[in-house]
Simulated scan of single mutants.
Amino acid sequence: MISTIQVIIVEDDFRVAEINRQLIEQIAGYKVVTETRTASETIAFLRQAEALPNLILLDVYIPDSPGLDLFWHLRSEFPTIDIMLLTAAKETKIVEEALHGGVLDYLIKPVEPVRFAETFRRYRSRKVLLSSKNELSQEDLDRVLFGTEMRQDPTSNVLPKGIDRLTLERIENVLLQSPAEGITAVQVGEAAGVSRSTARRYLEYLVSVEIVGAQLHYGDVGRPERTYRKL
């Protein structure tokens, strides 16, 4: 099983890099091992590293690397490292080239914190799944490729009776910002502005489609509580 995911941030603006570091390290299971400002600094660090990172968060606009030159260099010399792009580059040609090169995600600046966190949580879920099995079922592959099982996709137009899309989105947004150890139905209800029973109904639906995990938490006294966290 994978433990902590090691990340390098390649960003020439130190202020943006620091913000990204803080956002990443708020998510359970991640550690930023370094920040680099240029292509040459990035390549030099990787060549002397005792262990390669799992993931690079890369900007397109790097002073000594025009376009996607650094991206392609990394894909060639360090093919085992996954790459996500976080950049202001919106040109279709660049996006298509990055997708062709196997970029894991393409985030356009300024990115919403919820979208940012969702990307990293989904990546960790993918790594955990891939490291835990020798063979994958179609359902497993759907989770790897699309983030969930296609036949149970909660973003589809058809939701079960009693599940409203707007309320579901509010519940999911609360979960994205919840602590790594999980959150109770009471806490979700308070944050989302719904009753505990409503929160529990939506949470159990998300558990059923494998978007959320649940476990019992035993406190010092009283009955154990069921806590929920985004997978």
Score class of each variant (00 low, 15 high):
A17C: 12
I19A: 11
L23P: 04
L23V: 03
E25V: 06
Q26C: 02
Q26R: 12
A28G: 14
A28K: 12
Y30I: 02
V32R: 11
T36A: 06
S40L: 14
I43T: 13
L46I: 05
R47P: 01
A49R: 08
E50R: 13
I56K: 02
I56F: 07
L58C: 11
L58Y: 12
D59G: 11
V60N: 03
V60Q: 08
S65T: 05
S65G: 06
P66G: 07
G67F: 04
G67P: 07
L68E: 04
L68R: 01
L68A: 03
D69I: 06
D69S: 15
F71G: 09
W72H: 12
W72S: 01
F78S: 07
F78W: 02
P79F: 08
T80W: 04
D82R: 08
A89E: 15
K90H: 10
E91N: 14
E91G: 07
T92H: 12
E96R: 14
E97N: 12
A98Q: 08
H100T: 11
G102V: 05
G102C: 06
D105L: 00
P110S: 09
E112P: 00
P113R: 01
V114H: 06
F120I: 01
S125C: 08
R126S: 11
R126Y: 09
V128T: 06
E135M: 07
L141W: 15
V144F: 02
V144I: 15
F146I: 04
E149G: 00
M150C: 12
D153H: 09
S156Q: 12
N157E: 09
N157I: 05
V158K: 10
